[in-house]
């Protein structure tokens, strides 16, 4: 099976609320794809549609080229963590994994393997109702890994994890992708994905607002803004404006120019004999790039985050 997720033109309404409005993207194998966007952007709904739990009004979602609901032993094809709280509190973590394993024709040996893999250890034999959110996330990830699937889909896996846990999961996700798996990870905080995701699908108001590599995204958000520290503020402004840049005063001895890249700015100032002590090319952070992209897409709703 090809390790991909393909989502094409998904539309879905819950009553009068539009949850998905033409959501389209592809998750390729071999890298971590971040699925980001504010609450209510349609990330969780999209994941439920991919897993065949919710039916879209329009469009389709394919896993390895086929609809999820047609899969035999689906957990050996797609591992998913939707909600770490989806547990029977009186059942132990190990027993939770055991019934899942039995549903796929797997045995207890594989259960103990994934328990070791996520570092749950002896906790697995305690009732899941007493687990911290972090332990539940680990149990959920163990469930996703149970069938050793080529496609993984995790909804907000960083929630509730301590710093150690976040470091652990980032490493885990990278190594899973390095093994050639397609990994889709959603988050509403871009910073969590920094350094982990190679590809980003940014969702807003039920559709994809950007789908690109992380480097590209930062590039696009930086807009070639350059900050110049100079004692000759007005001469610098004249020189740069004359070359077609948009210039603004941003401090007592700083101006910001947008348009020409930093190298051109240095060239212009040197050529014009304008003294300067510092030229800084401004690089946006992933977070800033994301904020800019989703500024229009954020929906503030009195009724909370919706579904």
């Amino acid at each position: 099976m090809e390790a991909t997720i393909e989502v094409t033109g998904l539309r879905k309404r819950f009553g009068r609320t539009v949850a998905l409005d033409g959501m389209t993207f592809r998750v390729p194998p071999g890298r971590v794809t971040g699925f980001v966007g504010p609450n209510g952007a349609g990330k969780s709904t999209t994941m439920r549609v991919i897993l065949g739990l919710d039916a879209p009004d329009e469009g389709r979602a394919l896993v390895g080229g086929v609809p999820y609901r047609s899969l035999e032993e689906p957990l050996t094809r797609v591992g998913a963590l939707l909600d770490a709280g989806a547990l029977q509190p009186s059942r132990t973590g190990r027993d939770h994994l055991l019934w899942l394993a039995h549903s796929q024709g797997l045995g207890a040996a594989r259960v103990d393997e994934v328990i070791g893999l996520v570092g749950l250890g002896g906790t697995a034999r305690r009732r899941a109702g007493g687990y911290s959110l972090g332990m539940r996330q680990r149990l959920g990830i163990a469930a996703a890994l149970l069938g050793d699937p080529p496609v993984l889909m995790l909804d907000e896996p960083f929630n509730g994890l301590d710093p150690d846990g976040i470091v652990w999961i980032r490493g885990l996700l990278r190594s899973l992708a390095a093994e050639g798996r397609a990994v889709l990870v959603s988050s509403h905080l871009m910073s969590e994905l920094e350094g982990t995701a190679g590809q980003l699908v940014v969702a807003g108001r039920g559709r994809v607002v950007a789908d690109m590599g992380v480097a590209e995204l930062i590039e696009a958000a930086s807009h070639d803004r350059v900050t110049i520290r100079t004692t000759a503020r007005s001469r610098a402004m004249e020189t740069l404006a004359g070359a077609g840049a948009t210039v603004a005063v941003t401090g007592g001895d700083t101006v910001t120019a947008s348009g020409p890249p930093a190298e051109r700015v240095v060239e212009l100032l040197t050529g014009g004999g304008v003294p300067f002590s510092e030229v800084t090319a401004h690089r946006a952070t992933l977070e800033e790039a994301y904020m800019e992209l989703t500024r229009d897409a954020v929906e503030f709703r009195a009724d909370g985050a919706g579904r």
Partner: peptide
């Protein structure tokens, strides 16, 4: 109903889509 209460039914139906 315990499955519906905790959302566990989604895990069940993802494991056994029929």
């Amino acid at each position: 109903t315990a499955e519906y209460r905790r959302g566990l039914v989604r895990v069940t139906l993802a494991a056994s889509p029929r």
